[in-house]
Amino acid sequence: MNDINVGKTPLLQIEGLTKFFGGLRAVSDFNLSINSGELVGLIGPNGAGKTTVFNQITGIYLPTKGTVKFNGINLVGFEPHEITRTGIGRTFQNIRLFSNLSVLDNVRIAFHPQSGYSMFDSILSTSRFFKREQEIIEKAQELLEVMNLSRFQNEIARNLPYGEQRRVEIARALACQPQLLLLDEPAAGMNPKEIMQLMDMIHFVRENFKLTILLIEHQMRVVMGICEYITVMDFGEIIARGNPKEIQDNPKVIEAYLGKGAANAA
């Protein structure tokens, strides 16, 4: 790995991550190191194990082996909600909004761990409750405004157009106050114009919120366009890593994506 900041502790350091489902090896000996502020892509064909890596980072699956260090703390064994609270936000491949709730509520839910009042404050309607609620509303509205969603504030989430739903999901992830944002195929189902907008947005969010971003993507053009480093997986293993240029020319990657014969034919 051509890492510039040698010596500095990486924000996220994954070592030897392995996951078995029964006898099936979904991810094997996965290593990845991300420094603060980087935008890293993780690509690979369908079924390569990308989402499984995400699910292990966020604690939805317990890794069979390996460590996931975030800010120097090993996250393995933490519950998903605790991992989110340490500063990792994520979106989902197939949008998972709270579809019967309003857009504002969707974002407000993500503020729950930071609500700063207990259930008894809410039952007794203390002044702290009203103050914190107001703060949460303001923060949530600010996020919606940044994501250009203000006018949808009181809409029910499922009634929004697809692109807007993706943005709500990102707003919701940002509400978790993450240092690291995990985006799972954000461009899935988008047309080229929307993909352009999405890439703009990812840049914008990264600058404005000082985020480190790890991005799973299926479509090469998105990753090539915005990522600084790329890791390529196939069949649960890393087959290549480097900057977009190196990846583009890597024969192994072409083979993984197009198959052996296709690589030759191309």
Binding site: T58, I60, E79, P80, H81, T84, R85, G89, R90, F92, R96, L97, F98, S99, N100, L101, D105, R108, I109, A110, F111, H112, P113, S115, Y117, M119, D121, S122, I123, L124, S125, F129, R132, E133, I136, R172, A175, C176
Partner: peptide, 25 residues
């Protein structure tokens, strides 16, 4: 009072989508 609070919203979020709720902390 519970329903309108943050706790209430977390209760609703579990009904809507458990995995997403988990990932929201």
């Amino acid at each position: 009072n519970i329903i309108r609070s943050s706790t209430g919203r977390s209760i609703l979020s579990v009904r809507e989508d458990e995995t997403a709720a988990r990932s929201m902390g």
